[in-house]
Each structure stands twice: as C-alpha cells, then as structure tokens.
C-alpha cells in the first residue's frame, strides 16, 4: 500500500474552499456595511485579481506534476 502525493492536493482544495468562504464573508461585509467610495471597489478588485494570479501560477506549476507519485516515506518501504 502506498499513499500518493495527491493527498496534498486534496488538502489544498479543502484549504481553497475555506479561503473562498472567508473571502466571500469579507466582500459581503464590505458591500453590506461599507460606505460607497472608490477604494472599497478598487481594493476588492485588486484582491480578486491577485487571487486569480496566485491560482493561475499555481495551476501552471502543478500541471506537469504526476500526482500518482508515492510519498517519499513510502518509496523506501519494501512491498511484499
């Protein structure tokens, strides 16, 4: 039995879900309780743009990864 590195991808996706929930909370708070002006829209747009950039770069670097590669710990164990 071996565990592949895809487990980290699953943990990362769970982390992403939590990130999106908290992001929505913040955007909703700003929209619901904030006073209208240039900066809330500008900062929100900048935040969304930066998030998309981070996710895009992450996807680009993750595409070539073989997710079936076993974890380093399990590589060294003999399989009987």
């Amino acid at each position: 039995m071996s565990i592949s590195i895809s487990i980290f991808l699953i943990l990362y996706l769970i982390y992403l879900l939590i990130f999106f929930i908290f992001s929505l909370f913040n955007v909703w708070h700003l929209q619901r309780f904030g006073f209208s002006g240039f900066w809330p829209y500008a900062i929100t747009f900048g935040y969304i743009a930066a998030t998309i950039l981070v996710l895009a770069v992450t996807v680009i670097f993750l595409i070539p990864i073989d997710w079936s590669t076993p974890l380093p710990f399990f590589e060294s164990l003999p399989i009987d």
């Binding site: 980290f8 990362y12 996710l55 992450t58 990864i65 076993p70 380093p72």
Partner: peptide, 16 residues
C-alpha cells in the same frame, strides 16, 4: 517531484 508538489502547494497556500 514530490517535494516540488508540496512546495508549490505550500507556497500557494501561504500567498493566499
């Protein structure tokens, strides 16, 4: 490759 994958995910998580 396993270290690269973990590193990229950790770095992405940190920046987010």
């Amino acid at each position: 490759e396993s270290f690269m994958a973990m590193f990229i995910l950790a770095l992405s998580g940190y920046y987010l």
